[in-house]
């Protein structure tokens, strides 16, 4: 290569040739296919992440914006200083409150994800097994809720779950209970809200995994002596694993950081990291601390999930 360029210096035509080869060698279609998502990730994920990370290393200040600069330039002495404040991160571990909030968020998200999976699986299964015409209808029914505002739907649940709401009125009129149940402003309502809101995100990947499944595999399993329940757990579920993982990731991650649902449906004692973030940002006006909370959340959540996905991808390529 270096010899080639050397000769290109001497010979003008050679350099043109080398240039031509270069452009031929680079597959621009391929480059653009990869560069668009990379650029997207860089602009909308990586750069904001760095900005938040930067803020998390600064200190609060009564100023606009309300935090100190990391770099300080003293023109008189021509002295550039970099000040990194790790105190925010240390503080996260000093006060057990933050760890409690992370754990509680993870618990709520995990429980919700589990129930979402439990409800989504039969739906996705039914969709994948139904006739193509019915399938289109069911698919649109699953997506239909997205046509109304998310807030409106959560408010609708408030109407269902409140003390004199539909659920209580129904249960009372049928005589199942004689005192209204307190459902709103409880963790139960938060679970319902999250499960309901994120259900489509679980159904769709599951459906796409189940739809690809060859039905004769189940017949083969039955033929080999497996009862339907056994073949479901030994064949259907393992084959749906990519869908299950994708669905769980899609539900779990946003559920951990969920803010709106716990504030509308949850009780005041529903402790979630989204709420802590809000308090840091708006009540304490501590942008650096809020940023540190966000960064730790990202690391706690995204890293293990990326590792899982990575190892899964490797297994598939083997």
């Amino acid at each position: 290569m270096s010899i080639q360029t050397g000769s290109a210096w001497v010979d003008g035509s050679g350099s043109r040739l080398a240039k031509y080869n270069f452009f031929k060698r680079v597959n621009w279609g391929r480059v653009s296919v990869f560069s668009v998502p990379t650029l997207w990730l860089a602009i909308f994920f990586f750069i904001p992440f760095l900005v938040v990370f930067k803020i998390s290393l600064s200190e609060t200040a009564i100023a606009v914006p309300p935090y100190t600069a990391l770099l300080d330039w003293n023109a008189e002495d021509a002295y550039l200083s970099l000040k990194l404040n790790l105190g925010n991160y240390l503080f996260l571990f000093e006060d057990s409150f933050y760890i409690d909030a992370y754990l509680s968020s993870i618990k709520i998200a995990a429980v919700s994800t589990f129930f979402t999976l439990l409800i989504a699986f039969p739906i996705a299964y039914l969709m994948a097994r139904s006739k193509p015409s019915t399938r289109a209808l069911l698919l649109s029914l699953v997506i239909l809720p997205f046509w109304t505002s998310f807030l409106l739907r959560v408010y609708a649940w408030m109407g269902f779950l409140k003390k004199n709401g539909l659920v209580n009125e129904f249960l009372m009129s049928t005589g199942i209970i004689d005192q209204p149940l307190i459902m709103l402003q409880t963790d139960f309502a938060v679970y319902i809200g999250i499960v309901y809101t994120y259900l489509p995100f679980m159904v769709l990947p599951l459906y796409s995994a189940l739809e690809k499944m060859d039905m004769t595999l189940l017949e083969a399993a039955e033929d080999l002596g497996a009862r339907p329940a056994t073949s479901f757990f030994l064949i259907t579920v393992p084959l749906a694993v990519p869908g299950i993982i994708a669905g769980c990731v899609l539900v779990f991650i946003p559920a951990v950081g969920e803010f709106v649902i716990p504030s509308l449906l949850g009780g005041s004692d529903t402790l979630m990291i989204g709420r802590v973030l809000w308090d840091e940002f708006f009540l304490n006006r501590d942008w650096p601390m809020a940023s540190a909370v966000a960064i730790v959340m990202l690391i706690v959540l995204v890293l293990p999930i990326m590792l899982i996905r990575n190892s899964q991808g490797k297994e598939e390529t083997v």
Binding site: T216, E222, D223, G225, R227
Partner: peptide, 16 residues
């Protein structure tokens, strides 16, 4: 099917 003394080899093989 799971109780029959029969096994089948499927056209698509239906390997898991």
């Amino acid at each position: 099917p799971w109780k029959r003394p029969i096994n089948m080899m499927f056209q698509s093989y239906a390997l898991f």
